[in-house]
Design a binder for these strands. Structure first.
Lengths: 192, 192
DNA sequence: CGATACATGTAACCGGTTACATGATTTT
DNA sequence: AAAATCATGTAACCGGTTACATGTATCG
């Protein structure tokens, strides 16, 4: 297993490949045409990252010579790769992640489908929610007191409000997501 | 002037120093205790960045020996630095920025106070808004058609919705910000 | 006085960006 | 056959992270 601290990009690659074997170019195409673009980027990032993951034994490449003369390297997850992905998917959202690590939380959520139970997913969302609310409360307490407001220029006030509204929007989204997951759960229950 | 393509961190530093001369540690403290944390980071990023800006002639350091034996390097903007900052502040929000460059748009907005006229600021916000709406429309057209929805797993759907709601929240914030800027404008008018 | 916090850095490592290289396949 | 596009990379550069180094003020 080793110390599995990977880049967000690398986790995104693991997650994408987990949905089915893919060549580097396939991956590149998905990143270029979906909101995954958020994480990467150019072949110059993707190919080396795939190599790294292969070297660490998290991905394996199968040479596909069937149709073409130039072999395509088709990647799939190794058992270690599956394990590393699952461990990462089970990490809860931290304060640090709220503030800095761009989009890791939502990336993890979007890759959980099918790999984690709905119970786990809901727990993840609730943990995320709690972290968000704590952070918002702290920011509000710290920066939206009347004294702080008085000496804060309008632009700073508005920028802060921008951040706060964003976080509160996330909270609402989480509530909605939990609701939808539950609804699906009940439907599945009913079909039995 | 040269080709002024700076890091987001470097622009954040320029902007912060533009509010008044500061030592590296002062800067560090602000980054550590405000939502600016989003951009940096550790002394290991800040000090080298300040040096770079100094080397490029955008910042100048004054040695302050008055109170202490160890001199503090107090940074302030050079005319070139002011110019570089102003140019950057006048850049409008691009699609690429919406998707990737984390927080550059809001950073720019928050630094505009006092440096740009309210008219310019409002124009900036309107440009941002237009870019957001165009992007949201495109995403919706592309991904929320009934066929696309049908074959999209629930998690993917929810993650997409997360992004869309975030963007729509930004739009609402922009409308509110414009309104508040206008209100202030009218008040200032009345006081004359 | 010793320990802790203040204050300013430096150096190694590593990943992402940019730009280029190369060959194969398809289009004009 | 030439041009464009598909597909897979490589190499240089550069900035951020982590961890360490060092010295100064402050507090018990």
């Amino acid at each position: 297993m080793a110390k599995s601290e990977l880049t967000t990009l690398e986790y995104a690659l693991l997650g994408l490949v987990s949905t089915g074997p893919m060549s580097g170019y396939d991956v590149h195409k998905v990143f270029a045409t979906t909101p995954l673009a958020h994480f990467s980027s150019s072949p110059g990032a993707i190919y080396p990252a795939l190599r790294r993951l292969e070297r660490r034994g998290l991905l394996q490449a199968a040479l596909d010579r069937t149709t073409e003369t130039r072999p395509r390297r088709v990647f799939s997850l190794t058992p270690d790769g599956e394990a590393a992905l699952d461990i990462w998917l089970r990490q809860s959202v931290t304060r640090e992640e709220l503030v800095s690590t761009t989009g890791a939380s939502i990336l993890r959520f979007s890759l959980m489908g099918g790999r984690l139970s709905d119970t786990e997913v809901v727990a993840y969302l609730q943990g995320w929610r709690a972290e968000l609310e704590a952070y918002v409360a702290e920011l509000r307490a710290r920066w939206t007191t009347t004294e702080a407001q008085a000496q804060m220029p309008l632009h700073a006030k508005l920028a802060l409000e921008n951040g706060l509204q964003g976080f509160e929007g996330e909270v609402r989204w989480i509530d909605d997501a939990i609701e939808q997951l539950r609804r699906r759960g009940r439907k599945a229950q009913a079909r039995r």
